[in-house]
Amino acid sequence: MSAALDRTLGALADPVRRRAVELLGRRPRSAGDLARELGLAPPAMSRHLKALKDGGLVEDGHPAFDARVRIYSLKDGATAELKQWIAETEALWAHQLAAFKVHVEGGE
Results as ranks from 00 to 15, higher is better:
73 S>E: 09
19 R>Y: 07
56 G>Q: 00
4 A>L: 11
3 A>Y: 12
45 M>E: 03
92 L>M: 07
90 E>N: 07
100 F>W: 10
63 P>K: 04
1 M>I: 14
66 D>I: 00
21 V>G: 05
66 D>M: 08
24 L>N: 08
62 H>T: 07
43 P>Q: 11
49 L>V: 01
63 P>Q: 00
61 G>A: 11
33 D>R: 09
73 S>G: 10
104 V>Q: 13
34 L>S: 12
70 R>Q: 11
35 A>T: 01
102 V>D: 14
76 D>H: 14
86 I>A: 14
58 V>T: 08
99 A>D: 05
2 S>N: 13
104 V>P: 05
21 V>T: 03
22 E>L: 10
105 E>H: 09
8 T>Y: 04
16 V>H: 04
58 V>K: 05
93 W>P: 05
70 R>N: 09
18 R>L: 12
108 E>M: 13
77 G>L: 11
105 E>P: 05
16 V>P: 00
67 A>Y: 03
63 P>M: 00
69 V>R: 14
105 E>C: 11
9 L>K: 03
103 H>R: 15
100 F>C: 05
108 E>W: 15
50 K>Y: 08
60 D>T: 10
39 G>W: 03
96 Q>P: 03
62 H>V: 03
90 E>Q: 09
67 A>T: 09
16 V>S: 03
42 P>G: 04
15 P>W: 04
89 T>R: 14
87 A>G: 03
36 R>N: 04
18 R>P: 05
66 D>C: 05
77 G>E: 09
85 W>A: 15
38 L>A: 02
98 A>S: 15
91 A>G: 07
8 T>F: 12
45 M>I: 01
67 A>C: 04
11 A>K: 02
68 R>A: 14
32 G>M: 06
6 D>L: 12
65 F>E: 10
60 D>G: 11
38 L>Q: 04
93 W>L: 14
32 G>S: 15
44 A>K: 08
102 V>L: 13
30 S>K: 01
69 V>G: 02
69 V>A: 13
61 G>H: 13
105 E>K: 15
37 E>T: 02
100 F>M: 11
16 V>T: 12
40 L>Y: 08
